[in-house]
C-alpha cells in the first residue's frame, strides 16, 4: 500500500483503501451469506468521499452471489449519478462472462489493473517518481532478501542503492534479465553475479558443486530472478503498477556488461552474503 494511502476495514469482510487518487473496495477471499448487508451499510460513507474513481477489487473470488452483485450494482448507480467513475479488477473469467450475460459488464467495467482504470477515468498513471523511487525499489529489495533466505538458505544484507556510473563495468559473469513492460513506462531488471558467487549460491540451493558456469546450471539465474520478480510484481500491483509476466533470459560471459536501452542509467541494488556479493540493476525509462 502506498504510504499516502489510508486503509480501513469496515468489518471483518470488506476492506476500503483510500489512495491519493481513487477508492479501492476490496472483497474478501471468502464471502459470507450476509456479506451484501455489511457492504450496503458502508455505501453512504463511500459515496461521500471526494474521489473521482472507485475500483472494486473482486480478489479473483468465485463465490460472488447475486445479492452481492445487486448491492454493488446499486452502489455503482449511485456513484454514476454523482459523476464518479467505476471499474473492477481481479475479476475471474467466469464472473466476467456472467456480467456479460446479465448486461452489467459496462457498469462493472472489468479491467486488468488499476492503471487501466486510472487511464479510463482520465487520471494520471502511476510510475516511479524518479530513478531512485524508494516505493518502486523496495519491493525488489524485500523480494530478493526473501527469495535468497528461503530458497537458498543464505542470509543477506542489502546495501545502499546507487546510480551506475556512465560506462562503469561491474564484475558480472552471469545475469538473469527481464524487461519491464507496462503501459506507463519501460525498463529492465538484471540479477547479476560474479562466477564464484553464482556457483556458491547454486551449490547451496541445489546441493551440487560446479566449477564453471555451464548450460546445466545457468537457468538458476533466471529462476531466482523469476521468483523475485513474481513477489515484487504482486506488491507493485497493489500500488497500481501493471507489470506483465515475462520469461527471464540469461546472459553469460566473462566480465559481462549489462546494458539497457533506456535513456537513464541503471540503479544498482547491492547485496552481501556469506557466499559472496551480487547486485540487481534496475533501469526505467520515464520519458
Amino acid at each position: 500500500m502506498s504510504s499516502a494511502a489510508k486503509k480501513k476495514t469496515f468489518s471483518s469482510e470488506v476492506e476500503m483503501e483510500e489512495q491519493p487518487d481513487l477508492i479501492l473496495i476490496r472483497l474478501p477471499k471468502e464471502i459470507s451469506k450476509e456479506f451484501h448487508l455489511s457492504l450496503e451499510s458502508n455505501f453512504k460513507t463511500w459515496v461521500e468521499l471526494s474521489k473521482k474513481l472507485y475500483v472494486i477489487d473482486f480478489n479473483f473470488n468465485y463465490d460472488v452471489s447475486r445479492n452481492v452483485l445487486s448491492a454493488l450494482s446499486r452502489l455503482i448507480k449511485e456513484l454514476s449519478s454523482k459523476d464518479k467513475k467505476v471499474a473492477s479488477i481481479n475479476v475471474t473469467t467466469e464472473l466476467e462472462r456472467y456480467l456479460k450475460e446479465i448486461a452489467l459488464i459496462s457498469s462493472f467495467f472489468p479491467v486488468k489493473d488499476l492503471n487501466i482504470a486510472r487511464k479510463a477515468a482520465g487520471l494520471s498513471l502511476v510510475k516511479p517518481k524518479s530513478r531512485v523511487d524508494a516505493e518502486f525499489l523496495k519491493p525488489f529489495i524485500e523480494a530478493t532478501q526473501n527469495t535468497l533466505e528461503t530458497q537458498v538458505g543464505v542470509k543477506l544484507q542489502a546495501g545502499k542503492p546507487f546510480a551506475k556510473g556512465k560506462g562503469e563495468k561491474l564484475n558480472i559473469d552471469i545475469a538473469g534479465v527481464v524487461n519491464l513492460s507496462c503501459p506507463e513506462f519501460k525498463g529492465a531488471i538484471a540479477l547479476c553475479f560474479a562466477s564464484a558467487t553464482f556457483l556458491n549460491i547454486y551449490e547451496k540451493m541445489v546441493g551440487e558443486k560446479h566449477t564453471s558456469i555451464t548450460e546445466e546450471v545457468k537457468d538458476a539465474a533466471g529462476e531466482i530472478l523469476n521468483i523475485i520478480f513474481g513477489q515484487a510484481k504482486t506488491t507493485l500491483k497493489n500500488k497500481g503498477y501493471g507489470l506483465s509476466s515475462v520469461i527471464p533470459t540469461v546472459l553469460t560471459g566473462s566480465k559481462l556488461n549489462v546494458g539497457f536501452r533506456t535513456s537513464s542509467s541503471a540503479i544498482i541494488l547491492p547485496f552481501k552474503t556469506d557466499l559472496g556479493e551480487f547486485h540487481i540493476e534496475i533501469a526505467v525509462d520515464l520519458d
Binding site: 480478489n59 479473483f60 473470488n61 468465485y62 481481479n90 475471474t92 523469476n226 521468483i227 513474481g230 513477489q231 510484481k233 504482486t234 500491483k237 509476466s245
Partner: peptide
C-alpha cells in the same frame, strides 16, 4: 509464483 497465487482457486 506469488503473482499466480490469486488464481489458485
Amino acid at each position: 509464483a506469488e503473482s499466480e497465487a490469486s488464481q489458485v482457486k
